[in-house]
Write a protein that binds this DNA or RNA. Structure first.
Ligand SMILES: [Mn+2]
Ligand SMILES: [Mn+2]
Ligand SMILES: [Zn+2]
Ligand SMILES: [Zn+2]
Lengths: 124, 124
DNA sequence: CACCATTTTGATAACGGTTCTCATTTGTCC
DNA sequence: GGACAAATGAGAACCGTTATCAAAATGGTG
C-alpha cells in the first residue's frame, strides 16, 4: 500500500480556494474525515514544495501559505479580501527578467512575483 | 532632544551591504558603539517599514530582511551567495502588471518582485 | 501466518523570530 | 527642580515551524 498522506493533502487543497496555511489545510483534512497529524501536514507540504507540486508564499507576518498549482511556471494575482486567486503567466515578464539579470552580470536567476489587490467583486 | 533610535538604525544600515535581519542590524549598531535593545530595533524597523523608508522581504525560512532604500519604488536583484544587491526599476514591468490586473478586473494592486541569483564575481 | 526490517506517522518538545509587558529611564515644559 | 509624557529595553509570551523518537503501519520472506 502506497503512502496515504499525499492524497489527503490534495483533497484538502481541493476544498480550499486560494492559498492556505498549514493549519488551515490540516483543519480542512480533518473536516474531510481524513485524520492526520499536523506534523505530517508540514512534512508532506515540504516534500510537495521541493517537488514543485505546491507553491509557497509568505504573508506579511511571515507565515507560509501554500497552493496546489497546475502548471509548471506561473505567478499569482490574489484578492487580499476574499482570497480569490488567478494564475497568471506572461512570456514578456520572463524575458524582461532575463534581460535585467544579464545586463547586471547575474546568472542562475530565480524570481518571485506576486500581485495582490481587490477582485472586481470585493472592490464594489 | 529628538528621538535617537532612528539615526542609530540608519547608521547600522550604512554599515551593511544588501538586506539585513533585525538581529544583524542590532549587532551592527552595537558594533558601531550605539547601544540599544533588540526590542527597540524591531519597533523602529516596523515604523520605518510603515513609512516606506525601509523595504522588507522574507527569506525562504520566513525571516524578515530589511533594506534602507533610496528611491520610491523599485525592486531588487540579490546575489544569494555574497549578498550584493542591485536596485532595479523598469516602467515596462509596472505597465505589464497594471495591464494584467485590469484585464482580470482587479483593483488597487500591490506587487512583490524579487530576483535572486549569482553575481558575476560569485558565478566565476 | 509468523517474523523481522524498513518506513511512516504524530504527540510533544524544542527552536527561533517577533511581539508584548511594564518598570525604568529619558525628555519636555513650566 | 518638579510633574507629566514619551521612549526604552530586559525578559516573558507568542506562534509558526522543525526535530525527536516511540509507536504503528507496511512489506517481504519463509
Ligand atoms: Mn499557482
Ligand atoms: Mn531597495
Ligand atoms: Zn475578492
Ligand atoms: Zn555574489
Amino acid at each position: 500500500m502506497a503512502h496515504k498522506t499525499r492524497p489527503v493533502i490534495l483533497r484538502a487543497f481541493r476544498g480550499i480556494d486560494g492559498f492556505a496555511s498549514a493549519r488551515e489545510l490540516h483543519a480542512q483534512a480533518v473536516g474531510n474525515g481524513d485524520a492526520l497529524g499536523l506534523a505530517t501536514v508540514y512534512r508532506e507540504l515540504r516534500r510537495m514544495v521541493s517537488e514543485e507540486i505546491v507553491d509557497v508564499v509568505h504573508d506579511l507576518d511571515g507565515e507560509a501559505r501554500y497552493r496546489h498549482c497546475d502548471e509548471a511556471h506561473h505567478h499569482h494575482l490574489v484578492c487580499e479580501r476574499c482570497g480569490l486567486t488567478r494564475e497568471i503567466a506572461g512570456e514578456e515578464i520572463e524575458t524582461w527578467i532575463i534581460g535585467v539579470a544579464q545586463s547586471a552580470g547575474f546568472h542562475q536567476i530565480r524570481h518571485t512575483i506576486e500581485l495582490v489587490g481587490l477582485c472586481s467583486t470585493c472592490a464594489s
